[in-house]
Write a protein that binds this DNA or RNA. Structure first.
Lengths: 369, 369
DNA sequence: TGGGATTTGTTTATTGGTTGAATTATTTGG
DNA sequence: CCAAATAATTCAACCAATAAACAAATCCCA
């Protein structure tokens, strides 16, 4: 049961069940009727009706004319997420580009803006001002579509503390940048690591497995760990630093000060120079992850995705040799499906997930106007 | 909010709040009054009173005469967990001993039985029959104390599937042993890995940190990963196999078929032969864990605990060199406090945690007699 | 063409559980 | 000995889900 620390009142019951209904619709391939929701959740039809009424009134669900027909009986009214309800603003800042996108409640990307420019040449405040301008464009486009943005999330290639402070972003040359103070969009802003958000982006696609490791190979190597459908951020939010897992204890010196870090053998340059070496090193590090966390699926993203075919066999060889349970259950290796947009998409998804996981708070929000 | 998949009805509210009250008492250093519980949980005094009445009627809480006095006003009635309510039966089978213990709801060990004998010489059924006899002794002792056992949990040094099937226990020479079929105690039985349960045992002591790694160094090396107060078992329940994390890719061959596994450099024999080598290897593997999971605390248990002073510096040296965030936040290394009983204690704790986390189910149990 | 069968969705009385305010109980302090 | 203070209980009100009856809309078959 895992009782959390907070008391439950009747209104929490309603909040929970609102979320349950909304998510049932979201996870449904077709357009479920109230009766279908009732059957799949275990709530009464009467209760579902009442909850659906609230969700429709709050512009989270819409009724669609006729759902696909079946046998006899009164025809059902199909329910679906509204495309013109709340939306999420996804932002990304990386070494050579800035990006912003607007995703609606259904998960569709409605607008997408990218600016290519080397961010390493700018001080953080200037880079964030650029990003703010891009975000303003996106906000205007969302407004024109009748989408009310529920919040924004920003993907950063670095270590981020819980309050949005970027402690280090080596490839941007940032340290201790207080992003929320420098980037005021008039929206709640979440800041998180790029690999973490990309992992969440992957999670949302194709209803992938709820437990996997997403590995992003850019200049540095980061990983997002998704356990049971939830991102694991670690005690201080700094999990997933697979790039500095030791592969060869006395190997090449790394810019972090240690020797033999994965990054030195499977970073972007290393992959280009010697894919076999990179695959072996990745295989060794990933074996450690699987031995520790018992993950059944590993998703290669970022710069690894286009190189997937060249890396696959080399990684698999090490996995099958070094993973203790390889004989009992296989480890599936696959390429990311979202490409370069993964982190930005994941960022926007975080925002809309917030609404989908807690519609009651959204419905009770202090209304503008 | 993380809405789970199940609907919430009013009775769930009560179940949740019962658990909340019980845990508030359990986590309280002193003996809280109803009013104190009301203040710390946010529930009304009226509600707390009603919940406490149920818990007292169900023999989970008792009223103690006078709580420590303060200023004016009607004196409070102190509440505490009952020592004669439900209890947990903790069991352990290991290479050279069998053990059983009875722990009451307050967490106190009420009875403890150990039999020393080499279990590798026996077929699994015979070993489990021995254990059953020990368990029967413990059950009798519990009954004499008026403790009704809520269940049993068994710690095994091997990989355990969700249904209690022991897939492999190399040091016992077991494979595919269906423990629940061979060990019928007339109680619900949980089977889990020894390191996992030992980690839970450590968690319960001294209100330790809710996120840490417990490393158990016996003949093999296992680890229990506790994240936010919950044991992380992995997708299939096989997490924590740190013994087969690669430390030296081309190093000593391991019985698992790979080369350079940690077990070959930091197993019991290796520690005895060369503590410095063991510490370095442990440090390398633990650095990988911290880089991946961002854990702030590592607890060394099992055979490592007595060697802690000899190992500490060597491990720390590698950690500070190889953990990326070592400069931002320290990693604390400490020895386990529970000694050889950790796994058995953890097993019993699992049972009583079950009651503390969901008292409503316990109160609604089909009553004997 | 029309009436049952069938399924969807809504209405209504009931129930379970928390809340808030008033009430009772028991102490300290002046 | 009475007022102030704190603890715990009682009781009417409220909120949300339930169960069961009812209304709506279609299919199917005679």
């Amino acid at each position: 049961m895992n009782a959390s620390r907070s008391p439950v009142r009747q209104s929490s019951v309603r909040a929970h069940n609102l979320a349950l209904v909304l998510q049932t619709v979201a996870n449904s391939a077709d357009r479920p009727s109230r009766a279908a929701i009732s059957a799949s959740t275990g709530l009464t039809r009467a209760t579902v009706s009442a909850l659906v009424d609230d969700l429709i009134a709050g512009h989270l669900l819409t009724e669609l004319d006729p759902a696909p027909r079946t046998g006899a009986g009164r025809p059902a009214a199909g329910l679906a997420l509204t495309p013109d309800g709340p939306g999420g603003l996804g932002l990304e800042i990386n070494v050579d580009y800035l990006a912003a996108c607007v995703v609606d409640l259904t998960g569709a990307v409605r607008h997408r803006f990218v600016t290519r420019a080397d961010q390493r040449l700018l001080p953080p405040a200037a880079a964030l001002a650029e990003l703010g301008a891009l975000a303003a464009q996106a906000q205007a486009a969302a407004g024109a579509d009748g989408i009310e943005l529920a919040g924004a999330a920003l993907a950063v290639p670095g270590l981020v503390a819980a309050d949005g402070l970027v402690r280090v972003a080596p490839n941007l040359g940032w340290s201790d940048v207080d992003v929320p103070a420098l980037l005021n969009l008039g929206l709640p802003l979440t800041v998180d690591n790029e690999a973490n958000l990309a992992a969440l982006g992957e999670l949302r696609t194709d209803g992938g497995p709820p437990t996997f490791l997403y590995v992003s190979g850019e200049i540095g190597i980061g990983a997002g760990i998704v356990l049971d459908g939830e991102l694991y951020r670690g005690g201080r939010g700094w999990s997933g630093e697979i790039g500095h897992v030791t592969v060869y204890p006395d190997g090449r010196p790394c810019r972090c000060g240690a020797n033999g870090c994965l990054e030195q053998y499977a970073g972007q340059e290393a992959v280009a120079a010697d894919p076999d070496l990179a695959a072996a090193a990745l295989g060794i590090a990933l074996s450690a992850v699987v031995n520790l966390l018992d993950l059944g699926v590993i998703v290669l993203g970022g710069g690894y995705a286009p190189e997937f075919d060249r890396l696959r066999d080399g990684i698999d060889a090490e996995l099958s040799r070094r993973v203790l349970t390889a004989g009992l259950a296989p480890v599936t290796l696959r390429a990311a499906t979202l490409g370069a947009d993964a982190a930005m998409r994941g960022a926007a998804d975080v925002v809309i997930s917030g609404v989908r996981d807690d519609p009651a708070s959204w419905l009770a929000r202090p209304q503008a106007v």
